[in-house]
Computed example of a mutant assay.
Amino acid sequence: MNMKLTATVSALVLALTAGAGLAQTTLTGVRDLNDQLDDQERDINKDIARANDSYRFGNPSFRDGLSGSASLGYSGKTGNNESQELNAGVRLRYASGPLVQTLGAAINYADTAGVNTKEDVFAVYDANYYFNDKVYGFVLGRVSTDGLATTAADNAIDGFLGFGPGYRLINTEKTTWRIQAGLGVSYLEDGTGASDTEMGYIASSRLFYAFNENVFATMDTDILKTDSALRINNDLGVNMKMTDAFSTRVSYLTEYNDSRAIRSDNKLGVSLVYGF
């Protein structure tokens, strides 16, 4: 079990940033600390915001047409240590009435001293058609590739395409619960080029319960069953906004795969944000 306890203080970030002269160099460590605190606070706020599922209460009110965003980041070092890293991503959404389609992709590339250390590509296609407030259909496709995979134990390509119906069992301001299930095809290719294509079944559950206006719990469960493995991910989280200045999230993530020697990985996370 991995345990993580992270606390960030917004006022500290602001105070350090105020020293503009010092922040121009990493020699003093001030800018490095600023960056680390900013990253921690952003990650925590993203975890809390992600728990507020935009699809929780039905078809989100996305504007019709195409929208999206793209990002590109590059860094390179020369001298005693030579390395470079490239990260690129894109998110596209097309909404047309009851149909909402989303495509996201990320590319990560890195090399050190002329040797490639990372060649990863990850993409997800997600489409939902809302027949009414309770019934919808979905199509879900994902693929991840590892350009450095060379052995039978490495996944060079891991892909899945599935579709099926979804249904909202409960849809109130205090409690929402939706489930979806369907059929699909799983494709795996290892680093030696050997591949395996299997029929699979996918099922998901999204449960939300609000104790009050400041405290709510979520439990997100995903199940993928193929001939070779049963994989289950379950993320249980409690989000609390104690005051305008203090927010916290406690989560427990379980990843189960019956094809591994140790089938379950568990992670406890405690994230705190406090500003004054």
Rank of each mutant, 00 (worst) to 15 (best):
D38C: 06
L16A: 14
S259L: 06
F211G: 02
M3D: 12
L161T: 11
S144R: 10
A156E: 11
D190L: 13
V238D: 02
G65W: 09
D120P: 00
K118S: 05
D220I: 06
T151Y: 12
E85F: 09
G68Q: 14
D120F: 12
G76T: 05
V270M: 14
L5Y: 06
T176Y: 07
A95I: 07
L230V: 12
V250P: 01
Y201N: 06
L72Q: 06
Y130Q: 06
E213A: 05
E82G: 02
S10G: 09
A152I: 07
V124L: 13
I107W: 07
Y94R: 09
F216T: 03
L14Q: 14
G166N: 01
A20P: 00
V139D: 01
I107F: 12
D235M: 04
V139W: 15
D53V: 01
T243G: 09
N132D: 10
A217D: 02
S271K: 02
K118M: 11
S251C: 00
G137H: 08
S71I: 12
M199I: 12
G97S: 14
Y94H: 14
V273E: 00
A20I: 15
G162Y: 03
K267I: 11
A229V: 10
G162V: 09
S205G: 06
I232D: 01
D196P: 01
N116G: 04
A245N: 10
N233Q: 13
L22G: 01
D196R: 11
Y109D: 09
G73C: 10
N108L: 07
I48V: 01
D35V: 12
N212M: 02
G76S: 05
E41V: 13
T28K: 06
S205K: 09
Y252H: 02
I48M: 05
A23Q: 04
A105F: 06
D227A: 05
W177I: 01
T221K: 00
D222W: 06
V100S: 02
K4H: 08
E173K: 13
Q36L: 11
L230P: 00
Y109G: 01
L169G: 00
A70D: 04
Y130M: 11
D39F: 10
D146H: 04
S54T: 11
A181H: 05
L66S: 11
D43A: 07
F246D: 09
D111V: 02
G76R: 10
